[in-house]
Amino acid sequence: MEYFLQQLINGLTLGSIYGLIAIGYTMVYGIIGMINFAHGDVFMVGSMVSFIVLLALGVTGGSGAFMIIFALALVVVIAMLIASVYNWTIERVAYRPLRGSFRLAPLISAIGMSIVLQEFVRIAQEGRPKPMQPLITGGYELMHRTLAEGGDFTVKISNMQIMIIVSTLVLMTVFTMLIQRTALGRAQRACEQDTKMASLLGINVDRTISITFILGACLAAFAGLMFLLYYNVTDFFIGFLAGIKAFTAAVLGGIGSIPGAMLGGLVIGMIEVMWSAYFSVEYKDVAAFTVLVMVLIFMPQGLLGKPEVEKI
């Protein structure tokens, strides 16, 4: 029971990160109907930029709390800015000119873009993993089981985990408000429904799509920072696996649905953590891929998505 609780906390943390990336997939899919294959790599860029800026600022776990908070705030802004620029550029260069081309064209372009980003970062920053001293330490003991009760085990939640879960919640709330309450969100939802009609009604479709990419990149960059702080390491390749898992989350939640992406992220995080805890760590990725395959085959509309009727 205690062990399970601990895994639940870990799963929630990991799931939050996946969920944040998944939103980017789901929004882009919703609006232009393609998988932004390079999205996982934008997450990686966010993580890498966070690492570089933290290193440049020279903050360590020993710096004062104020300093750390200030530095993190700065890092969030910079990482979001840079990731947005990347994702915006990707859309302008690799996807926008292909609108109206045959269906596989943007997908192949996206695969190419994903390779470009990975290789670009690998060449510029070397391929070796970048380790980092833990920045946020400490935590709380939630429960303790003694040896007499069947094994020494302490259920802990670290400050880092609290931060990830809470900030994800805050970000999600802000984001949902943005989509539901503002003109931008309305434009975005209109484009999802019918791009052509939206443009006839005076919505600037190109701009709306650009903004969608930027929003997705912001969330991915934030997830990248959280990933860095949680695992204390980053490299040029993290975007590949995280990308596939986040995509799985988006599909599981029902592609196009933002709460779905978050829910899917949590489920995938849980599955991965539980699988590692109870079965085998080696096959945790296989488990995640299996979920992807199962969902796509048996439940392509996902948990919160709408079923698609084939139009003949």
Binding site: S109, M113, V116, F120, I123
Partner: peptide, 8 residues
Amino acid sequence: LAVGLAMV
């Protein structure tokens, strides 16, 4: 990198 660029 060149292959990726070529694809795009």
